[in-house]
Design a protein around this nucleic acid. Sequence first.
RNA 1: GGAGAAGUACCCAAGUGGCUGAAGGGGCUCCCCUGCUAAGGGAGUAGGUCGUUAUGCGGCGCGAGGGUUCGAAUCCCUCCUUCUCCGCCA
Length: 426
Amino acid sequence: MLDLKYLRQNYQEVKEKLQHRGEDLTDLDHFEEWDQKRRQYIQESEELKARRNEVSKEISVLKKEKKDADHLIKEMREVGDRIKEIDEQLKSVEEKLNELLLSIPNIPHESTPIGESEDDNIEVRKWGDVRQFNFEEKPHWDVATDLGILDFERASKVTGSRFVFYKGIGARLERALINFMMDYQVDEHGYEEMMPPQIVNRDSLTGTGQLPKFAEDVFKLEDWDYFLIPTAEVPVTNYHRDEILTADDMPKKFAAYSANFRSEAGSAGRDTRGLIRQHQFNKIELVHLAIPEESYDTLEELTGHAEKILQLLKLPYRVMSMCTGDLGFTAAKKYDIEVWIPSNNTYREISSCSNFEDFQARRAGLRFRRDPNSKPEFVHTLNGSGLAVGRTVAAILENYQEADGSLTIPEVLRPYMGNRERIEPK
RNA sequence: GGAGAAGUACCCAAGUGGCUGAAGGGGCUCCCCUGCUAAGGGAGUAGGUCGUUAUGCGGCGCGAGGGUUCGAAUCCCUCCUUCUCCGCCA
């Protein structure tokens, strides 16, 4: 959410900057009208309320002195009716204004490249050497099925498409990755570990920006105003919602494991096979609450923390800076980390690291005080995957497959896998 | 799920319609006393937000949202949270 006053004072400039995002901004045309009406109603209503407060005191005095106050009471009855009328109009215009503010995307940071689509994203760096196979490499779902460690067919029976069973050593691999990633972020990068609720309410999803605009992307519980989390970003960022932190509390760094649930509305037919696009997947999420002037340094640090996991797993990747047209609703700047997937002959997103500046903080009421006497300011929020576990499994299956159908286990995972070095086909 | 109780400022807490636009404590800040410490004495201690071309004025605020009333922390309704007992349950 943008600041009302900022938007009022920089209306044209904001409008221009948002145009680079390629979003429909026709609602924005109402802003000036509604903003003005709102302030007009507030003024009228408050004048009458001030008058009512004053006269109510007079009435109280008169009554004590046993004097007649009927004419004042009658007048105040009319004033009260008028206040009610104005407040109703005020409420209606505030609702519209609020809805508008909630639907305006964040302003891209000046370092975000301007562009229309993913083709305009810019490669920032590349790490690792892509393996040259001396046999025909298989897609990860074939590797996994031949190893007997993933079962997509039965998951379809039990639930439906885009779900999977991890079996035996496959389940162990997934769990090893979760533990390895979490241990590393906590022990080496100083994150505080969190296990959040995986169901959240409407306010939380509004706080991080999934609602109201992207309701179709999340699963909602029937008969409840509760939703399955699409990412741990939602509960963890909302952890301090409507709080004022002290400077001593800052910055905050949380690492959270959770399952993630996404409806994948609108992506029918894409990545229908394998682990890349599931309705449910595991992820370690890194969340920062940063002091505003530090947040862009934090974004680099956070991205580095995610990259480190891929380096330790020896999986080749590249880092892309998302252009204005591919930025997402809430981010001011975003890096995607993409891992090499041999069967696709390309890099695929495995982590997304964003700085939202104060966009989420304003929605969620996340503030801090620099010192005990200063005014509260909005924090900057950031998050990034460290990493998406299912896609990491896919990358390992493809990059570590051997000609005989076996799989080499990345060295750093072996302590988590009973010191196994490989998985043999059934 | 059933029955009951409670939510007041940093904390505890008084308060059933109008000098409470929130008593009193504790804590915290400052001052006095004091060789130091302790004890004692005094003063201060809503914050936030919104409106207003404003070193000021005003609106809102007692869990949240409605309602009654000239006037609500106080009366009514709905909801949320916490606690106790019972039931059920991993």
